[in-house]
């Protein structure tokens, strides 16, 4: 199918980092089944570095590809770098997404941030709240009818 770029199809066919991390240091889940996509990110953090990352996704091809690409982009990176990952960077790394699928990349960004926030909260680490946008389904409303 030519709806997606080769990059998207590659990450969809062979998703990187699928799975679960038992006793993860941070877990983030965004989206809801009603909308048709949920992403869950698991983080293993060592010395402020993302030592390992896994994901589980319920969603369309671009949701799975976005999760896969986002985990690749943050794996082995310092937390502060992961926090600056934008949905645009995920979409660009995938050689683009169709306009009505951009929300999938937003979910990926939000899921990572939610997992980092979870890590900070679990460990009583102070963080700058402004770095975390509110996770909501507001972006769904931008989807065309």
């Amino acid at each position: 199918m030519s709806l997606y770029s080769e990059k998207v199809m590659d990450h969809f066919r062979n998703p990187r980092n699928v799975g679960v991390i038992e006793n993860a240091d941070g877990v983030g889940e965004v989206g809801n089944a009603k909308c048709g996509d949920i992403m869950k990110i698991y983080l293993k953090i060592e010395n402020d570095i993302i030592a390992d990352v896994k994901f589980e996704t319920f969603g369309c091809g671009s949701a799975i590809a976005s999760s896969s690409m986002a985990t690749e982009l943050i794996k082995g990176k310092p937390l502060k770098d992961a926090l600056t990952l934008t949905n645009k960077a995920v979409a660009e790394a995938l050689d683009g997404l169709p306009a009505y699928k951009m929300h999938c990349s937003v979910l990926a960004e939000e899921a990572i941030k939610a997992a980092i926030k979870d890590y900070y909260e679990k460990n009583g680490i102070a963080y700058d709240e402004s770095l975390f946008r509110e996770t909501s389904c507001a972006h769904c409303e931008d989807r065309p009818e």
Partner: peptide
């Protein structure tokens, strides 16, 4: 979710359809 199901079936040579939003 139906779209990912269709894409994977297509990889296996199966042409199908879904009523999923995606």
């Amino acid at each position: 979710e139906g779209e990912s199901l269709l894409l994977l079936l297509d990889e296996k040579g199966i042409c199908a359809s879904s009523g999923s939003a995606c």
